[in-house]
Simulated scan of single mutants.
Amino acid sequence: MKKLLAAALLLVCVLLAGCGGAEPKKMVVGLDDNFPPMGFRDDKNNITGFDVDMAREAARRLGREAEFKPIDWSSKEAELNSKRVDVLWNGLTITEKRRQNIAFTAPYMENRQIIIVAANSAIRGKADLAGKVVGVQDGSSSVDALEKEMDTTRTFRDLKKYPDNVAALLDLKAGRLDAVVVDEIVGRYYTGKKTGEYTILGDHFGTEEYGVGLHKDDQELLTKLQKVLADMKQDGTSAQISQKWFGADIIK
């Protein structure tokens, strides 16, 4: 009888993931780790950024541990739908096309698709991009924005796609590109550190909103995460994180 009781207790402990209590469930966050200031690696190779801080705090409130998984951003929907990641949280633009495969939280930030050129460039607006080579991050919302304005895009001599925005901006600096179309938040963060090297044009390719992306069938997590985001906005936590990275509260 004692042996049976001991076996039963052992089984209960196993089912509870240990008598001391189960470890917090992880929330695996898929991100592009070269997307400053939303998600990137610091000089010690640690993943950091605005969205990283937001996700870490949200996971804590959900009783989970945030695990950040760098992915090929152009394959983000495959990563999500195969459930290799739980959420996509890295300046993910909400679009109707993406809604077909991704469940989104309410938007938490607004963004524009800006045009960056070299400081000494003669390009002054969209019309001047005719016959020019334009760079963009592959799989990004910048591509979607350009596809919405094909009358302009068709005038480009070439549209070159890069694995990340940093590589595109480096080619712009080297003269291999005439312009780069990029998320405003990312573009201003990067070019702000390179005073005198780049110019941001007044023209842009539209306004968009950022949201967190989840599996279409993960409605329970979506509901809980949406409440946590609302709570973070209400109690000022989101504003504090925004002030840290942008010097202002730009939460929507």
Rank of each mutant, 00 (worst) to 15 (best):
L62D: 11
P107F: 03
Q226N: 14
E149F: 02
I71Q: 10
T155Q: 15
M232R: 03
E110Q: 14
G202T: 07
T195W: 01
F205K: 02
D249V: 03
S75F: 11
P37L: 06
R60E: 15
Q113F: 07
V133F: 01
I200G: 07
M54L: 15
G175P: 07
L31P: 02
Q219V: 14
A248S: 12
G139A: 12
D72W: 09
Y189E: 02
P70S: 05
E147G: 06
R112H: 10
L221S: 13
S142K: 01
V85T: 12
V14C: 13
D231L: 11
T199L: 12
D249R: 05
I114K: 04
K224Y: 11
V29K: 08
Q100H: 10
T105M: 01
T191V: 12
I94M: 14
D86G: 11
T155N: 10
Q137A: 13
W73H: 04
S75T: 07
E220A: 15
S242K: 00
V117M: 07
D42Y: 06
I102Q: 02
K173S: 13
K193T: 05
G30T: 03
L225H: 03
V12I: 15
G49Q: 01
H215M: 11
L4M: 12
G187H: 05
G131L: 09
N90Y: 00
D217E: 14
L229H: 01
I251H: 06
G135S: 06
M150D: 10
R60K: 15
Y108R: 00
G131M: 05
K194S: 11
N81M: 10
H215F: 12
M232D: 01
N120R: 10
D138E: 14
V181P: 04
